[in-house]
Nucleic acid binder design. Structure first.
Lengths: 293, 293
DNA sequence: TAACTGTATATTGCAGGTAAAAAACAAAAT
DNA sequence: ATTTTGTTTTTTACCTGCAATATACAGTTA
């Protein structure tokens, strides 16, 4: 096997989602733009849609013939890119304690177990190394440093430095800066979510990420913003793996966010520092509480 | 071609360096330990030394027959690992303005031009991306963000945050912590170097790196320490590429370091902050002055 | 003329293979 | 009993090749 066609399959599924209620499709470049894919892939999708009788396609004319059925979609697991597969598989090992801190990580073995090529696993590990959880011995194996309390503390220490600075910078943004409008929208989303948190608990993690990323972007510093990737990644898996107290934890975080947002609006540095610190402290606590000891 | 044997060649050369004045060599494991290589490579080295008449080798007995000659050494360019070659070649393009900010970087083209395989170049770019100079468009090319003033300012901003915190932590290290002894040694090296800086200008960059790394390590934070790699990398190339005013620049830095070291010894937080800030400010200035505008 | 389609070409993502280097294992020597 | 050597096995580093995808170019349509 060479490259897999997950880009095609995943975009095909998204196209099907949007197919209902339309009777024709726009031009190829427009579709490419919409789904973030090249015309080559657009044409592959259109070809398949024609072959499965979903549309007719003659040059500019692309007429919808019928609504897509469940069986028209590619199964979910076929739309995950190899990288996502490797990442999930690897994180599962780490978080379930399958691999203990200090242990060696073996590229060849990992590749065999995951069923991927050595190159892909290798590239994944190189990218992953920036999360501070693994370390390379040159010409030899990787070492798992582990998802430990130390790790969480070090992560949160840097986060605090970066986020305090970003929040301070946020307050200095000119009133007409689009970030303020984004903040309004995010605040509304918070208020909506807090009302029926029970049914929409899954929406918390992405909203949390959106809010903090907005704050970090105010730093205008690529290293600060890039580091937020690390935080988001860790918290993403933290939310996924540790569901205990999720409801109360999320509610508390949402309320702290609202307090934090109000502080940003006040533009008062001390008030901002207080609200930011309070939230980051409780985020750190929940992260550390969830770790094995 | 598969893997190259630069580990062997480079270690072989180091062995030759140490060969003079000895009449026998220690055990294989000991040699492996000393040069940071496996026994397999040690044995390859011993084999070659025997074949070229440098030693006799019978089990534990490894007797030196003659001093190594110039022609016994592998030429320098054969001891650079592929990664070093790619890195140098790539940095040359960036720093000579061969590639302008905003331009696309093409893995395949780069690989052809450097004469390396696509995988190696790809892995290099992934590792290199943490320096904040390039960015990946998934399924497509990389973008060069460029060695610009913005880049330097963002880098220095984070450096300041991290180093101030590290320096503060340094002052709190217990008196018997080995870092204080390391600091003594580094101070001595500074005083030695400042005396004949003209003839030993090449020694400045590694000493600078050693000093700042020692400070950063006091943070006890892997993200802070890892980030120092980025700084060291950038300054390394900065020193290499920009020789103008090198002499006065280095002398100033050395004196600032001595002042900074004295401040650390005083353990006075304000004094430390002053000395650290002063040095980081002048480091930032020299970095920015060197950039094209 | 500007946007679109048809087609050709280039690049990326990934697997497979191989020499270099590391690691593991067994036998021998202190 | 521990360390060293001889030998075998495994893994890493790297190149090549191929399908998926992106990009470039030429012809077509509004």
């Amino acid at each position: 096997m060479a490259r897999q066609n997950t880009v095609f399959k995943e975009a095909y599924n998204r196209c099907l989602e949007d197919l209902g209620g339309k009777d024709s499709l726009p031009s190829e470049p427009e579709l490419g733009e919409k789904y973030g894919i090249s015309r080559t892939t657009v044409r592959a999708i259109l070809s398949r849609m024609r072959d499965t009788g979903l549309i007719t396609w003659d040059k500019r004319q692309k007429l919808v013939l019928r609504r897509p059925l469940d069986q028209d979609y590619f199964p979910d697991e076929e739309t995950n890119s190899l990288n996502e597969i490797i990442e999930k598989s690897f994180m599962q090992r780490i978080l379930t304690g399958d691999v203990e801190p200090g242990m060696q990580i073996n590229e060849a073995e990992l590749a065999r177990e995951i069923g991927a090529g050595a190159t892909s696993v290798r590239e994944f590990l190189i990218r992953f190394s920036r999360f501070g959880l693994i370390e390379k011995r040159p010409n030899s194996h990787w070492i798992l440093k582990g998802f430990t309390v130390d790790f969480a503390l070090e992560l949160c220490e840097v986060r605090e430095m970066f986020e305090l600075r970003s929040a301070t910078a946020f307050a200095k943004l000119p009133v007409n800066h689009p970030a303020w409008a984004d903040l309004d929208l995010i605040e509304d989303e918070h208020r909506d979510l807090i009302i029926d948190l029970d049914s929409r608990f899954k929406d918390f993690s992405p909203l949390d990420e959106k809010f903090h990323l907005l704050v970090h972007k105010a730093s205008g510093n690529r290293f600060v913003i890039d580091f937020y990737d690390v935080i988001a990644f860790i918290f993403h898996y933290h939310f996924q793996w540790n569901k205990s107290q999720a409801r109360s934890r999320n509610e508390r975080a949402l309320r702290e966010h609202l307090d934090y947002i109000a502080a940003l609006r006040s533009r008062d540095p001390q008030e901002i520092e207080r609200a930011c610190r309070r939230h980051l402290n409780s985020a750190r606590e929940t992260l550390i509480d969830a770790l094995p000891r």
